[in-house]
Design a protein around this nucleic acid. Structure first.
Lengths: 414, 414
DNA sequence: GATATTAGTTCACCATACAAATAAATCGGC
DNA sequence: GCCGATTTATTTGTATGGTGAACTAATATC
């Protein structure tokens, strides 16, 4: 009479186990049971299924830490379970100034191939952007023969709308608003996610840091611009605009420095690479940048000359330090995150900003500001963008896996 | 062999149904089934249990809207289910300048008794504050004979730490940091929750507005100070400091007006009642305020004279309008909520702020700012504080109810 | 080897969600 | 006033799937 009943209970528990492993890395069945509050029997049953389906796999026992002579753990040693790298792949793309980079990642999130497309991004029209993204993905796929991606994540600088998959504005493009997700999805036939690059980075930054996977965490990313990602319990914490925040365009000084967004006095206009270099060129004889953004070499040169005492340049970094303190103070006041992480290539010259940053942060100890010990600096490069975006794409794949294979047939029929 | 199995599944679904009714008000079983995605049978079974336990009750059929002659809905009419008002009670307290107000609310959230304790709050020591809170609760309980409260919510102005139940700083007290929750909990023998008054208010503001119960919503409360509550899907959206936000102490103008928090240039220092009145007295011959905060009468007089054209006073409101636009712009940039609601007694003179507010908001259309149509103005008084706090206390009671009565014995034994 | 300890599996039980059938309550039409 | 039609609610049969407990497995200590 009744067709196979479909309940949501097991799907939910499958999803919980997969997410646990996705966010916190490999762990043994006991650990899964403890952390998901499922019984050992249920974990055994579900993980057995997931292993049969090739979603999970047992990992070689971890090094039993024989360093200490005594005190080996007694009892049957646990066997770590991890996401099976071979189960599925995703692709991630980072759109940056004059560089569109594609990555293919395995199911565990490890990047297995990379392909960079160098091009004048500000000269491209919308079709050109899509074309270069596809090239970046195809190039990476060619270097990693095997199955195609099951989902694709696109990370773009500037404002994006993850809900519609559109780029609204980007400093590296001249297209204005354009659809990113739909054309790429049509081309590869898989779901496409679009996010801001700072948001994507934030996911990668907290990846292997358990302390940052609890509570509300804000990740401020300094680079060509100033972006921020908001995370809760290690996962995206979406507002209406994905989980990125335009903290860079909060005004810190009415009528202040010109920002490329059109306003004056934005935090970004004092703290971002483009602003530091622009102002530096007003003060010193620095190399011309043909795109509107300085390269890493330009920025290193600027910092070197500021450190060498070239007149006025140090003051730029000192002001940037205060702007960074302002940004942290605002985030602390508005949101009170458990931790505020600062990362990105903009930290390269942090030593020049640090004195003014520290004193401004101490002065700005307004009610609600998180104390200085809650501000962390995490170095790291642009590879975090694709790593985070791959993670996001993988979570989308996971969501589909929670529904068991036999179900998908039903849901397609019903 | 096996003792009665305990699963979490039904508890979860009980909690979902209760929360649905708590947040969205009475509805029929079909509506519950649709919105929780449970089957009609499951809803029937669970609601039956909950009715037997006295947690829910069937409500009289709603007015069948006979206004239109034709088009009565066909079919068996739905019977609305609601939270049984008699099931339990909670108390809520609002600590304001020179007024500590206690309310007793029934299980549906309706206030059934109120008692205000008038006192010089800034003259009280910690014990005195606790004593007055207890008086406020006892007074309300006396006027509503019946069972005692199952939980108590305390709403305080200024900074509170909901995690520890402490007041950290308040403009209406001189105690500095003090423990609010523990002494009150000890006195009444029930759990006590502490929150900021703006956060509490925000819960009440969105209560009967379905549009505000979806996605991320920020509720800005203008009054003696400037506070904000953050909600997601109609419920609290906690950061590290409850779900309140110290947006009032974000600096909008370096070296600007003195704020009572010790900094200069805070938004609050231009927009809060205390700031408007303080500055007004510098410009015009206004009545003295003996506590450091103006009363409603003082504020009405100030607005009246500004409107009458007394020199300089209108400019204060014009500046406040810009400060309000700044606050909204910052919240929009950092968080991009679906809606930003402005409420509180500070709206009494909004007509004086409106022109500058509108133009400043239009100018501040930075990337990521929510458009003007997403900003709503909701009038309403201080009774929202206790209403919201009662709601929060009731959600705490609900959490206990999700575990069925027979379970509690087990959990106590185990 | 005996014992202890921890990890993982198996299995009987039964709670519980689902689907479908049934009952209940109302309306519109004749 | 009775008959479908329509919508809401309850009942019932069934399969799912989690729990607890017993059992097996693998290692360390003595």
């Amino acid at each position: 009479m009744t067709v196979p009943t479909r309940t949501t209970v097991k799907d939910t528990n499958r999803a919980r186990l997969i997410r646990q492993l996705r966010r916190h890395g490999p762990m043994a069945r006991v650990a899964l049971a403890r952390r998901t509050r499922l019984s050992a029997g249920a974990v055994s049953a579900i993980t057995g299924e997931l292993i049969d389906e090739g979603i999970l796999c047992e990992l070689a026992a971890p090094a039993p830490a024989p360093a200490e002579g005594a005190a080996g753990p007694r009892g049957r040693p646990p066997v770590e379970l991890g996401l099976n790298p071979d189960h599925a792949r995703v692709a991630a793309v980072s759109i940056r100034m004059n560089l569109i980079e594609g990555v293919v990642a395995d199911f565990s999130g490890r990047a297995i191939a990379r392909h960079a497309v160098v091009c004048q991004t500000r000269s491209l029209d919308a079709a050109g952007v899509i074309e270069r993204c596809a090239q970046a993905i195809d190039g990476a796929l060619e270097r990693a023969p095997g199955p195609g991606p099951r989902a694709i994540g696109l990370a773009a600088q500037g404002m994006v709308d993850p809900g519609t998959g559109r780029q609204l504005w980007s400093p590296v493009l001249r297209t204005g608003s354009m659809d990113l997700a739909a054309p790429v999805a049509a081309r590869f036939g898989v779901p496409v996610l679009v996010e801001n690059d700072a948001a994507a980075t934030s996911l990668a930054v907290v990846r292997d840091q358990p302390d940052l996977q609890r509570g509300l965490v804000a990740v401020l990313m300094l680079g060509h611009g100033v972006g921020m990602g908001l995370l809760r319990d290690g996962g995206a914490f979406p507002g209406s605009r994905g989980f990125s925040s335009e903290i860079g365009h909060v005004r810190r000084l009415p009528g202040g420095a010109q920002c490329r967004c059109g306003q004056r006095g934005c935090i970004e206009a004092y703290l971002a690479d483009y602003a530091l270099y622009r102002d530096g060129r007003s003060l010193a004889d620095l190399p011309h940048t043909d795109s509107q953004q300085p390269t890493e070499d330009h920025m290193v040169e600027l910092a070197r000359r500021a450190e060498a005492g070239e007149p006025g340049l140090l003051a730029l970094y000192q002001e940037a330090g205060v702007a960074l303190a302002d940004a942290i103070s605002i985030v602390g006041s508005v949101l009170a995150p458990r931790r505020i992480v600062v990362t990105g290539s903009g930290l390269r010259a942090f030593r020049l900003m640090e004195p003014t940053f520290r004193s401004a942060l101490a002065r700005a100890f307004a009610p609600g500001l998180v104390p200085e010990r809650d501000v962390l600096f995490v170095p790291g490069g642009a590879e975090r963008i694709t790593a985070g975006m791959a993670h996001l794409a993988l979570e989308a794949v996971d969501a589909g896996l929670a529904e068991r294979p036999d179900r998908q047939v039903f849901s397609a029929a019903g």
